[in-house]
Write a protein that binds this DNA or RNA. Structure first.
Lengths: 136, 136
DNA sequence: CCCTTTTTTTGGAGAAATTCTAAAAAAACC
DNA sequence: GGTTTTTTTAGAATTTCTCCAAAAAAAGGG
């Protein structure tokens, strides 16, 4: 529908309780373009500037966290200096290319953790992350 | 032997190609006291100062990295803002208490990864890290 | 529409963790 | 011992990320 160009993105933001501002719509369009993506705040900000989307780095940080809280993104911890965000929120794991810092999805069914201990002290398991570190 | 009080630590450093300096000996004694430990540069530095070991933060950073390169320590990535080092270099995994930032070892045999994909593009798997994130 | 309220964005300052630098100190070697 | 090499150090610099307070934009009536 030509007169409601971004209606799907807007609905998605609204459903997450986020006002569909110009910046959030633009970033959502970059992130949720169909393919699975791994971004950092800096990389997404650079990409936005490249496409002449006016948005501040602070807003990119805010938006990534809001999207994560809303379940639209998942934070991945593979590097102790930098936050990665994954547009694939399905159950899956990762290859981490140590040489390049590049992240690659492993579909959920290709990794099987067949034994896990119980969480200590009545705690709840929030997530089990498997990172396969590879290099040349 | 009373006249060679730290000879084991000194030998360990020498075997790793590291000169047994006062600072490295003191930090090694703190780290390798028998029990498995998880430290950050800041926490180890604070502990050293507490025991009136004169050592700079820069040296603690250098030393942790040298020990890691020598295989005496292992770096654990569970938090994208802080580096943890583990004195347990045997095959094992971790609970990460999201509330407190506390790390807890899981013995190697209590986690079984029974299926893993092949590393892409002729790369070598360096390590498989399993982090079980828990909270109250 | 226009006004009011609420939320968002922003640039720049601030914070936290880590690395760099270059000079002084310590260890190794002969 | 004197020389060479390595290590330590304080402080500056860097990087990533967060905070702040003011300006801008969105929402919600009339």
């Amino acid at each position: 529908m030509e007169n409601r160009p971004y209606s799907q993105v807007i609905d998605r933001l609204r459903n997450s309780g986020l006002r569909p501002t110009r910046q959030r719509i633009a970033l959502a369009k970059l992130l949720f373009d169909g393919c699975d993506r791994h971004v950092t705040a800096e990389s997404l900000h650079a990409e936005a500037l490249d496409k002449t989307i006016r948005v501040s780095l602070a807003t990119v940080y805010n938006t990534l966290h809001q999207f994560t809280d809303a379940g639209l993104l998942r934070e991945i911890v593979v590097d102790s200096h930098r936050c990665y965000f994954d547009t694939n929120v399905a159950d899956h794991h990762h290859f981490f290319h140590e040489d390049s810092g590049h992240l690659e999805d492993i579909p959920g069914d290709e990794v099987v953790v067949s034994k896990l201990p119980q969480a200590p002290g009545g705690q709840t398991v929030r997530r089990v992350d498997v990172v396969v570190r590879i290099s040349g």
